[in-house]
Write a protein that binds this DNA or RNA. Structure first.
Lengths: 345, 345
DNA sequence: TTTGGCACTCGAAGAGTGAGAGTGCCAGCC
DNA sequence: GGCTGGCACTCTCACTCTTCGAGTGCCAAA
């Protein structure tokens, strides 16, 4: 539906706008990018493109600003092509991996790295999948009234909760409870076993039923929801950008970043399918991104869903940002079996 | 060294400045606060006070702005008196406590509450004391090459680390290692046992020495440093304040909040003694607080040091903020044995 | 020692102006 | 028919000038 020339004009406008932040005029386009077409011709094309919704004018007699539709076109064109990996970034990630941190920690370090390199807010998240399998349950007795409940999930994912019992619970009792739970539930997807387990326990283990019931509801809360754990870094990075001297826009994004609930909804919505996704804030007012864009790389494997993302201004350097995210993401998962947080070296 | 009247003038200037944010003129002082003294007299006093360093003029023919010296005077006068507790705040905290969360979680909730009420950034931190006693060490075997190392410290403080072993480690071996460590080290302050333990282990447990040595260095890193764990909330709160429409100041504080290292240094420096401390940023340029002030409430008990704090603009409502912090802090620790994160109800 | 009065200072806000960038449209050219 | 150069028009931005008001400092009188 776009002629080749119109496409070229849109791309040039987006490119120029990303690099200057100012409305783009026909003359500068003709001079810098499309030297074979005159400014007047570009003006005509621009009028059409404006009608089609790719660009707008902040006011008469100003240049054109790309709309989210144009950004989408631009981003898709980048995603289609191949990006060059930054070998420097890959090296620095390798350094991180040598520090033998666990996977979650590595994820945090990676996001810090990303944030510094791209001058955006980086976001890392991991969540157990709903259908994750329960490996086993274990109690670590702390004193007579307290125990640490460890839920070991598939893929070495561990959730834990300190439990307070209303009555004395000996180590032996706890071990026995854990043994019984494991006999029934180990190896099964948690959402399948949960209900059966609860009724079983409440009926069979009458002598310790009160504590058991308590423990059960706790376990429930631990894994039942597909809750992301979030790590964000680099808020100060976006303050450096010339775009956000105006506080109002910052407020929106900071509220979003501090509100795990909203953040979780946003991430779940836009990282639904594995791989790299680009969300342009103004494309969907309900995203909560406002005048920001986000990139998400996500992957579901053995029990966990992992997301690594960037949040930056709509006119961020997508090419660089996408390349950086891909480089880091691939670095995280490369060496085959190293994925899923394996710690072997 | 200040006459009674000079003192009154300083207090009135600070009070008015806190509530308006504008330089305070002699006329409005005479009208609003010191009705028995004429503006001309106040002008004379102001000239003296300026010489003494309590107030400054942003430019000739503007009102006076209090300096950190004046703020300090004001804050001290508040701390001397008694504040009224907000019963609403106390009630909301009680609600939180009923949710049976562990102490650290409760601390986080409390700080969120504080942030909302005072419109400042709230900061919660907890750290094991250097001389904390080791209760015991436990390994939870995950698979042949991985185990979760749990270090149980005095006061139910738990540190943990996922360990990767370079060779197979059976559950029995791990239990044996833990048993030996516990025999020697349990009940002793960690910094005392550490060195002896290391040499003991490296010599005695030769057959599993490589893994042991690894485990030991990990334990070391877990407790050796007095590392605060930080939780901050409410960054978006300070964006609402009229003072910080200027990005530069925000940048300083956001960098500080995102840099755990610097934050830790700052907190350690200003919450050295138990109780409530007020830091006025401009009083000490090295604080990193810039044009912000901070309140810290801190307490060291059975193994942990806990800090709850607020960071707000220098001209924050200290009276309200101090009262709020005190209310929440007392709420956290009241009911005697409920302190230290006891979970009984 | 305190007070009223007066001249002076300075910044904030508003109006006016010119420069510059950009557009839309028209008429001519390939 | 599509492309281009030219021209009139529009709108913002930055700058200057002016006015207004709040506030001071100082002096002389009570």
């Amino acid at each position: 539906m776009l002629t080749e020339r119109q496409y070229a004009v849109v791309m040039a406008i987006v490119f120029e706008y990303i690099h200057t932040g100012e409305p783009v005029g026909s003359r500068s386009l003709s001079k810098k990018y499309l030297t074979r077409i005159s400014a007047a011709t570009i003006r005509n094309e621009m009028a059409d493109l404006e009608e089609m919704g790719f660009i707008t004018q902040p006011h008469t007699s100003a240049g054109r600003v790309p709309t989210s539709k144009a950004f989408r076109l631009y981003v898709d064109s980048i995603l289609e092509g191949k990006r060059q990996k930054s070998s420097e970034l890959a090296d620095r990630l390798l350094d991180l991996k040598r520090q033998r941190a666990d996977f979650e920690q590595l994820l945090v370090y990676s996001s810090q790295l990303l944030s510094r390199v791209t001058h955006t807010v980086a976001l890392a998240a991991s969540a157990p999948l709903a259908q994750v399998r329960l490996e086993r349950v274990e109690f670590v007795s702390i004193d007579l009234y307290h125990a640490l409940l460890l839920v070991v999930l598939q893929g070495r994912l561990i959730h834990q909760k300190m439990l307070a019992f209303p009555c004395e619970m000996s180590r032996e009792t706890l071990d026995e409870i854990a043994r019984r739970i494991n006999t029934i539930a180990s190896g099964k997807p948690w959402d399948e076993v949960r209900d059966g387990l609860r009724t079983f326990l409440l009926k069979e283990l009458d002598e310790v039923s009160e504590s058991c019931r308590l423990a059960m509801t706790e376990i429930d809360g631990l894994v039942s929801a597909e809750n992301f754990r979030f790590f964000t870094t680099g808020i100060h990075q976006i303050l450096k950008l010339p775009d956000f001297q105006d506080i109002g826009r910052l407020q929106a994004i900071l509220s979003l970043l501090e509100e795990e609930e909203a953040l979780s909804r946003m991430v779940r919505r836009y990282s639904a399918k594995d791989g790299l996704n680009v969300v342009i804030g103004s494309e969907d007012p309900e995203s909560g991104l406002g005048s920001f864009s986000a990139l998400f790389s996500s992957y579901s494997g053995k029990g966990t869903r992992t997301v690594l993302g960037l949040i930056g201004p709509v006119r961020m350097d997508y090419e660089k940002a996408i390349a950086a995210l891909e480089t880091v993401w691939d670095g995280l998962y490369e060496n085959g079996n190293n994925s899923e947080g394996r710690l072997r070296d």
